[in-house]
Design a protein around this nucleic acid. Structure first.
Lengths: 194, 194
DNA sequence: CTACCGTTTGGGCAATCGCCCAAATCGATT
DNA sequence: AATCGATTTGGGCGATTGCCCAAACGGTAG
């Protein structure tokens, strides 16, 4: 015995999962109402019954996925004893992402769309700020100088590596980790330019 | 007196410039034949007279823009005396790119599309390899250890910063430069994980 | 002047788009 | 059994898509 509202929530879930598959496969702007419904195995009209628009489905799917991924990253980080080990662990778990896998592509697609979608931009900025602050706090507690700036650059660098990976197969974690770890070292003297 | 072929080459140029504007404005997949022609100030049919497909216009525009930008970056780099100064200079000139400006968005759009477009992927990989190798050679000549890995991570980190900038306004060059410069320092010891 | 050829025009083609909606369906409640 | 509200169905709406093409245009050569 299944109530109508239970079936409804299941359809919603299937639509969000379909979005998680199709955005990386086709690109955010190439996902259509009908393709989404077909992948979810439901009738096309259901998309606009459960969501206010096609964009709303994609936004909710993207934000949910990123929240899950980033939320799992912080505690994993904290299992490491030192920041240097933390970067190592993070990059190792990052080897699961080739850069052209669904999760990586969803991240980049969302970043890019957020440049033109104010609502998505706000949600992503909040998500990213939360992750960055968590990382910065942990870095600070372990004696890292300029923890906020370091965390910001670290987060950006990791996404940059994912962005470059499909074009540069040499960017494996074992090649990246030693270089990226140096970011935890002391400042390097350099002229300040005007 | 203007020959037909001269007018033709001018139309081609105008279409490529229009693509340079519209891809960042609307997103790669949202640029249509008609919108492109309208922005270029030419008739719609000309798009498929001068190019084999709409995608071909966007590809040629993106590759050209990236070739120009990356090509200008290497000599600028070499004007610096030390790698530390080079990063400073690069990041300063990078302040011209807010992350949601046309040039930055075109870079990211191209990276993303290349995940699904084999031809574009090949061209971008070549472009990126050329830049990375030039940077690595210069780093090596200035005594930088692991120059290839350092250059690869540096290139990725810069693109990551551009990707994050619209979501994290604190990522100014003055905040990023000191952190990113540490990448030129000595290796940091850290456990190797199994 | 005529013939020629690369360029340009603008409308047409079939396909697809996001979104809408009346009607059908289904379990729960009376 | 009758009724109700939430969910589902599938087709329809006007707009837009990439690409095509016959016809017009315009400078050059014979």
């Amino acid at each position: 015995m299944v109530t109508a509202s239970e079936r409804g929530r299941e359809v919603r879930r299937k639509l969000l999962n379909a979005a998680l598959e199709l955005v990386p496969e086709l690109g955010w702007n190439a996902v259509s109402t009908r393709a989404l419904a077909e992948r979810a195995g439901v009738a096309p009209g259901l998309v606009h019954y459960h969501f206010s628009s096609l964009q709303a489905v994609l936004r909710e799917a993207a934000v949910g996925e990123m929240r899950r991924t980033l939320g799992a990253a912080i505690p994993e980080f904290e299992r490491a004893g030192t920041p240097a080990d933390g970067i190592g662990m993070m990059l190792e778990s990052l080897d699961a992402y080739s850069g052209d896998d669904p999760a990586s592509l969803m991240f980049t697609e969302a970043y890019l769309v957020s440049a033109r979608d104010e609502e998505l931009r706000g949600e992503l900025a909040g998500l990213l700020a939360e992750f960055r602050d968590g990382l910065a706090r942990w870095l600070g507690e372990h004696g890292q100088g300029s923890p906020v700036e370091t965390a910001s650059v670290l987060a950006a660098a990791v996404d940059g590596v994912l962005l470059h990976r499909p074009l540069n197969p040499a960017l494996t974690s074992s090649a990246v980790a030693p270089v990226l770890r140096r970011i935890l070292g002391p400042d390097i003297e350099g002229e300040e330019h005007r």
